[in-house]
Design a protein around this nucleic acid. Structure first.
Length: 306
DNA sequence: AATTCGCCCTGTCGGC
DNA sequence: TGCCGACAGGGCGAAT
């Protein structure tokens, strides 16, 4: 579920505590999450390297180090957080609900305030990076759809997952984009097309539904039937939807947390996603919940047309 | 060649 | 109360 705004938020919050840090030790406990090198070699490869830069590409967060690059995809339930080892061994370990019994802790978790709410370390923490200053970067992922990619060197184009990505929506201008790509010949429906990362990257299920709603486009509309004007509107709405979500620190429906443990607030602003069966804010028509492109999809059958 | 589908995975929730 | 199936879905590889 972490899409572009969530990854951007995580990157921005992580930056000050991770940048310029020297890696002392790396522990990976779920080896199948790692691509690009042998899990037993990861620690040797990364040890001693300084994190020089952090960037986001689509839904990927990229750690540029002196020699190599480490890429993380959060999948569905991935969480990145920083903590100091001292707080894990004293306060947090004793009192954090996550560290007592995950099952029991859930019931009472709402009663805990930051910093105890932050995901610290449990059986779902699959990657731990310890820095020379004793702080740690933790990657926790309940459903393990996430990925950790080691890459030798800095050439991102050589990383297969990254090289397939399309344009960054926040960096493109609708007008220039259409001058370059128009007409857009594709037989698929617009929902499936936008979920595909190779044209525009960073959009997931939530922000595709939201962008289509704002553009009054039915999610099943074939791409080649969308007029140039509609595309202009769609592209600018994509940017607006993403920018607003970043201002709201992302959308928290279940697992997504900022690295400081707090939730985003954009879920309160959504117009269609998660609102199936409820009235459209514009016309009061009951919003339809269906499945398109193998994904739960919500739209207004009155406002959103072909 | 283009597109669709199945699968990976765990926690939650609703129905019986 | 407890069990079980359905559901959530990003991205890849297999199947069509």
């Amino acid at each position: 579920m972490p899409e572009l705004p969530e990854v951007e938020t995580i990157k921005n919050i992580l930056e000050p505590s991770v940048l310029k840090q020297t890696i002392r030790q790396v522990d990976i406990s779920l080896k199948r999450m790692l691509e690009g090198c042998n899990p037993s070699k990861l620690n040797t490869l990364l040890k001693g390297q300084v994190i020089k830069n952090i960037i986001r590409r689509g839904k990927y967060i990229v750690f540029i180090m002196e020699k190599d690059t480490l890429v993380i995809h959060l999948g569905m339930t991935g969480q990145l957080t920083t903590s100091h080892t001292s707080s894990i061994t004293s306060n947090a370990k004793k009192t954090s609900p996550e560290n007592i019994q995950p099952q029991k802790a859930k019931r009472s978790i709402a009663g805990y305030e930051f910093p105890l709410l932050r995901p610290i370390e449990d059986r779902h923490t699959h990657l731990k990076i310890t820095f020379e200053n004793n702080s740690r970067l933790l990657f926790r992922d309940v459903r393990t759809f996430g990925k950790i990619i080691f890459h030798n060197g800095h050439n991102l184009e050589k990383i297969p997952r990254l090289s397939k990505l399309g344009v960054e929506p926040l960096e493109m201008t609708p007008k220039e984009f259409l001058q370059k790509h128009w007409p857009i010949q594709n037989n698929r429906n617009i929902k499936a097309f936008l979920l595909e990362q190779s044209f525009i990257c960073g959009l997931g299920n939530i922000y595709v539904d939201e962008s289509l709603y704002f553009s009054s486009i039915h999610p099943l509309t074939p791409v080649h039937k969308i007029s140039r004007d509609k595309w202009m509107s769609l592209l600018s709405n994509i940017k607006k939807v993403l920018q607003k979500a970043i201002l709201n620190s992302g959308t928290t429906f279940s697992d997504y947390r900022k690295p400081d443990g707090e939730k985003g607030s954009n879920q309160e602003k959504l117009k269609v996603y998660g609102r199936g069966g409820q009235p459209c804010y514009r016309c009061k028509t009951t919003l339809v919940k269906t499945v398109i492109a193998q994904r739960g999809t919500v739209y207004c059958p009155h406002c959103q047309i072909f």
